[in-house]
Write a protein that binds this DNA or RNA. Structure first.
Length: 300
DNA sequence: TCACGTCAAGCAGAT
DNA sequence: ATCTGCTTGACGTGA
């Protein structure tokens, strides 16, 4: 079991997700930004290692406009060494990596244009992981997508579109239950048609479920991850007290977290904390799980 | 230095 | 009709 957080570290004085306006695009600006973002990404990973944080989601803003037609620059070639260097660090310390493309990425869109744009954006995500030479346990997580007035048809469209996409993307993709439209049961139904690993979001499940207990589900979910996919990934969060249903808490509720660990104690998986204060909660969570025999501690 | 209008991209639900 | 949330503010102009 690894514990991690997504994209942003607030304690360091650098960011790996600096971007700029489309209007300000220039090759020079892109090069400067990517150079900064990559060097900061490595600093974040080093920080994480020091704090036993072995799971990290890389920001989709690492290379701004990478999938936009304005970007004709071969950033893959230019930064090949830097990517490989970060990849070596990740592999050396057995860090787990995920990515989560934005809400605009919709495989089941009714529009061919949106689907094509989505494929370009997914290719960019795959490029990042491939340039780091990471194995297929580094995943790209997506939701099923929209309903478009007919859920059954929209799920079918996801399946036909998924079957059509190239292997490079397919092998990296996992789908995640969302808090409103597609529950983990829906995802399991999809999995019966296409072999795709299912990433379980505990908080989305709290918001959108048909009564299954979390613990019971893990047995089925685990089976959707084959050996090359690595172990099950889980997104964890809890409700912001007094906030709207679905609003993420701003710092980890240790009691809730420990209950979750207890409830799932017979399973092993990696946990991504989708909590506002990022690395602070990850550090707290690792401390709270210090007696848990599943927790991986980096070798010094 | 700071205020504030706006930012590549989509969808659904609330207001 | 418009706003908000999503994983979430922050870029950048103008004063």
């Amino acid at each position: 079991m690894r514990i991690g957080y997504p994209c942003i570290n607030n304690l360091l004085d650098c960011k790996s997700d600096i971007t700029f306006r489309l209007k300000s695009y220039s090759e020079k600006r892109l090069k400067e930004t990517v150079k900064n973002n990559l060097s900061c990404l490595l600093r974040i990973l080093e920080f994480n290692l020091k704090h036993n944080i072995l799971f990290f989601r890389i920001t989709s803003d690492l290379v701004p406009f990478a999938s936009h037609s304005i970007c004709q620059f071969n950033w893959q070639k230019k930064f090949k060494k830097e990517f490989a260097n970060i990849g070596n660090f990740i592999k050396k310390h057995r860090i787990r990596i995920s990515m989560h493309p934005d809400q605009f990425i919709l495989l089941n869109s009714l529009s061919e244009r949106i689907y094509e744009n989505s494929l370009r954006e997914l290719t960019y995500h795959v490029d990042v992981l491939d340039l780091m030479e990471l194995d297929l346990s580094s995943k790209i997580q997506l939701h099923v997508g929209g309903i478009y007035g007919d859920k059954e048809k929209s799920m079918k469209r996801f399946i036909t579109r998924f079957k059509r996409i190239n292997t490079k993307i397919k092998k990296r993709l996992v789908i995640e239950n969302d808090e409103k439209l597609y529950s983990i049961e829906d995802c399991l139904n999809l999995n019966r048609e296409i072999s795709i690993p299912l990433l379980f979001d505990t908080f989305h499940h709290e918001c959108n479920n048909t009564g299954e207990s979390m613990g019971k589900l893990f047995n089925e979910l685990r089976k959707t991850w084959h050996k090359a996919d690595g172990q099950l990934m889980v997104d964890y969060s809890s409700q912001y007290p007094g906030g709207k249903k679905g609003k993420h808490i701003d710092t980890i509720n240790i009691e809730h977290f420990q209950n979750f660990l207890e409830e799932t104690k017979s399973f092993d998986f990696d946990i991504m904390l989708e909590i506002k204060d990022k690395e602070k909660s990850a550090i707290k969570a690792i401390k709270a799980a210090s007696d848990d025999t599943r927790l991986i501690i980096p070798s010094k």
